[in-house]
Amino acid sequence: MRIRDCTDADWDQVWPIFAGVVTAADTFAYDPAWPPDVAREVWVERPPGRTSVAVDHDGTVRGTAKMGPNRPGPGSHVATASFMVAADARGRGVGRALCEEALDWARRQGFAAMQFNAVVETNTAAVELYRRLGFTVIGTVPESFAHPTLGLVGLHVMHRRL
């Protein structure tokens, strides 16, 4: 598995991952009705941010990440990131590789910390991965995410210093 910058040519493989994750409606508060051009505008970061892909040895994109400053101005010393993994690649270390690489990128860019603003509390695989990578839940906004099968669930704010 190789992590590299996302290129324009990767979008044809990133889009199905994005669409699958968003259509499931259980981890991201993105609109499943977004067409590919709107999704691309939301997902592909402009500098100083970055979008990356996790690519198998055969060139197949298995996951993607976006990262950048959490807030502008006085909040720009804290990074944020989001991750999506193809359904058929879950449980194979793709998410971990993307997250570790995003943390390394943030350190290289001089960020002091990384914060995730909206981790769905029922996304236990992601919550546990982030905890293993040193993040802590610093708060949970109750009933702020409409899960398709569980109803209203909380969103964790997770943080770690770099």
Rank of each mutant, 00 (worst) to 15 (best):
P16C: 01
V14R: 03
A86E: 08
R4T: 03
A39F: 06
G134C: 03
T140G: 03
R46W: 00
A87T: 09
V78K: 09
G110M: 05
R161D: 14
G68P: 12
R71I: 05
A81P: 04
F83K: 05
G63A: 08
A19E: 10
L129N: 10
H57E: 11
F116I: 14
V22W: 06
P142M: 06
R90S: 07
L162C: 04
R40V: 12
L150N: 14
V42K: 11
R62D: 04
D10L: 08
V94H: 10
V14L: 10
R40E: 08
L98C: 01
R4P: 06
A126N: 06
V61D: 06
V153M: 10
M1W: 02
W11S: 03
L150P: 08
A81Y: 07
E143H: 13
K66S: 09
M84A: 11
M1F: 02
T80P: 14
S144N: 15
W43V: 07
R90G: 06
R2W: 02
M84K: 11
V42F: 11
T23A: 13
D58V: 01
R160A: 12
L155H: 02
V21K: 04
P148A: 07
T64L: 13
F111M: 08
R4A: 01
R40G: 09
T23H: 05
S52T: 15
V119C: 00
E143T: 12
V38H: 10
P35S: 01
V141E: 12
D10N: 02
V141H: 06
D5K: 10
S144E: 10
T64S: 15
I138K: 06
V21S: 02
G93Y: 15
V85T: 13
N117R: 11
M67K: 08
G91L: 13
V119D: 07
N70R: 12
I17A: 07
P47V: 07
G139H: 09
H147K: 03
T122H: 02
D12I: 14
R2A: 04
P148L: 08
A81N: 01
T60V: 15
C6M: 12
C99I: 01
F145H: 02
W15N: 09
P35W: 04
E101W: 14
A125V: 13
H77R: 12
H156V: 03
V55R: 04
